[in-house]
Design a protein around this nucleic acid. Structure first.
Lengths: 212, 212, 212, 212
DNA sequence: CATGAATGAGCCTTCATTCAT
DNA sequence: TATGAATGAAGGCTCATTCAT
């Protein structure tokens, strides 16, 4: 019986996840509007109608894809926020490695692309992404840098700006991978870029004393 | 025709340009698929039919928007490439200021967003953007940095990586403006960010001797 | 099975009847096309699949609803047809009271509405309804009136027309109840209307002699 | 040029009327849900898309059909309401003839059928039909009858009931025409039925004195 | 018998594109 | 050139019907 391909499968519990996963691929590849329900369904291995057993509309699927990509990263952000208040270089190196790993190993890059692309059409999604993920992470980094400045570890300068200086190459290389690599551009080794970047930037932003 | 020509008479020769300009706004706001020909025509102040006197298809308009945004910047890139081989800090500061000015003062950010979003659907556009703009600029910067390394001005490290480290915050802040500012995020002062970034990074990447 | 059988155990034998009853309500409320199998099943207290154990298609259920509403009334019609050939006023009064009672106490009004609404899509249903119910009743009345005319009880005039004159207010008030009362119209007291109608009409159609 | 069938016609002003007329036929024949936009468009001689240049949704078309059928009759109702306060028999005979003419000569029967069928799904349509047409007409008749009763022309009895007694055969024969005639039932001669009905009923409802 | 997850044909609606004016 | 009414293909969504359990 196992060998015969049953026409129906009856796996209510698994379906939503499978559909969201398939949708992530299709949306990341084509964008929201150009993605066809048929494609999503086929890639999820179900019929078009089955998708509507689990989601109300195409927009719902989109929202599920994006918000679902937020949640697992919230933990990481919280860990970052709660990070020990020790010397800032270790913190930054640790965070950079962790985030680089996430970015390299998950489809979060594709989701980021979708958020950027559809922010105009789905403001609430941009808001969720910002409020729950980006602003949190940026805020945690900013606070840590301000504390380090107070301790004399980091040179004067806008702390929030230091924070984006730190993460910008990550976003850049991810979008590079999504945008230009498929048309033949030379890819970047994301962890390597981050290593060089963090060392260079630390070198530039730390005070003499902290650089020891 | 005569002296009594109405002051605000529409210039026929300007039509394509007006349409492209209108299309840029609509595409940047909604994305390619969600942009309606009707909106573009209305915003350009012409009828829907008139658009088809100048462009074959919606894709054509899109291509025109993106490629048109490339050309004026090619000059800048060439200037960059031909830049004098003097001390690298001045070159970098000069380039950064120029690029920051362009980014802050033109809709190129919206175009970048479109390129990222539609790279999957219009690979040749991603290719044009990469080959004629991004790769050129990155290549010029890379060469200049390698030359500076050869002169002992810049520390060892991957020159192409140094180049993206330099420009990444620019892309980041532009996308921030396009994506999160409309939903209430605090904006960045792009030139200020670039100033701090360039100084910090130069501080970190220059050798002792060059830092004088 | 045994004495301990649950008190409210569902009678399998009743299922078709329960489904038809539920379907009658839903069809009467929404019409054939707008009625959803899901609604019918839910209102009958069974699963959607169970409906298909008893009926082949949605059309089948519809046919069952309408034809089932015909049968119990056929007896009444036959009784009418076989009615004693005595003075017509008594016959008419008796028939009117009986029919008014049926109309007021059964969902036959909703069925009539369905027949009217779907006659175009289900001609055979209109035909059944006409041939087995309406034409029979009308024919019986017509014959009785013609007999009364022969006996000099009823004035000259088209007998079939007299017959519909008699029943028309019944249909009118039923449809009023189905159509306008739900949107706030003042309802009619159907038996009262029929009493006044029958007396007025008899007054107008009987000859001097019969009016004694 | 006239001989050649042009692909497009450009008759903006005529379209809505043509579409509503076509829709009336299709809706009356199939009902709202079973009517296909394609059918309506084809019968109106336009493409499916063209329909959407003039109406937002299928429901809109339906509403337009029904409300459009109301308006021309409102005038007649008003005339009825303003009718001279002379002897009631003349008034009733006049109104009956007029209404019978309208009913026989316009598609109002089909519209009435639609209103009855879809009252559950479109309550506001039932409300419009009732408030602007049926209740007005019934109210005017009721008032006239009450006045006649006050003058001693009409026997005691509920005036509103007398009013529906009067019009019921009209509705009955119209629905008969829409429902049973297509499946082979013998049609009624509507004006003839009304003549016999009015005379019989007047005979029954007038007082001795008024019958002179 | 009974369930309800799954299917897929069908239809409303949108919108890029065409063309008579 | 310019217009905008008209077209028709495409796709989101619904729901009667089927079938593995």
């Amino acid at each position: 019986m196992d060998a015969g391909e049953p026409k129906f499968r009856r796996r209510k519990a698994d379906r939503p996840g499978e559909i969201v996963e398939a949708a992530l691929q299709v949306f990341a590849e084509k964008g929201f509007a150009a993605a066809k329900l048929d494609d999503i369904a086929r890639r999820a291995g179900v019929s078009k109608g089955a998708v509507y057993l689990y989601f109300e509309t195409k927009e719902d699927i989109f929202r599920a894809v994006v918000t679902q990509a937020v949640s697992p990263n919230i933990a990481a952000v919280k860990a970052m926020a709660a990070a020990h208040p020790g010397p800032i270089p270790d913190l930054i190196r640790g965070v950079a490695q962790m985030v680089a790993g996430v970015v390299a190993g998950t489809p979060i890059g594709g989701v980021a692309k979708m958020v950027i692309a559809e922010a105009g059409n789905f403001p609430e999604i941009a808001r969720v992404w910002h409020d729950e993920l980006v602003a949190q992470a940026l805020g945690a980094m900013t606070l840590a840098i301000e504390a380090a400045q107070a301790r004399g570890e980091v040179k004067p300068g806008d702390a929030r700006t230091y924070a984006i200086q730190l993460v910008a190459p990550l976003l850049m290389t991810v979008l590079w991978r999504e945008t230009f690599v498929p048309v033949g551009a030379r890819p970047f080794d994301i962890p390597a870029v981050m290593t060089q970047h963090v060392e260079t930037l630390l070198n530039g932003m730390l005070t003499q004393g902290a650089r020891a």
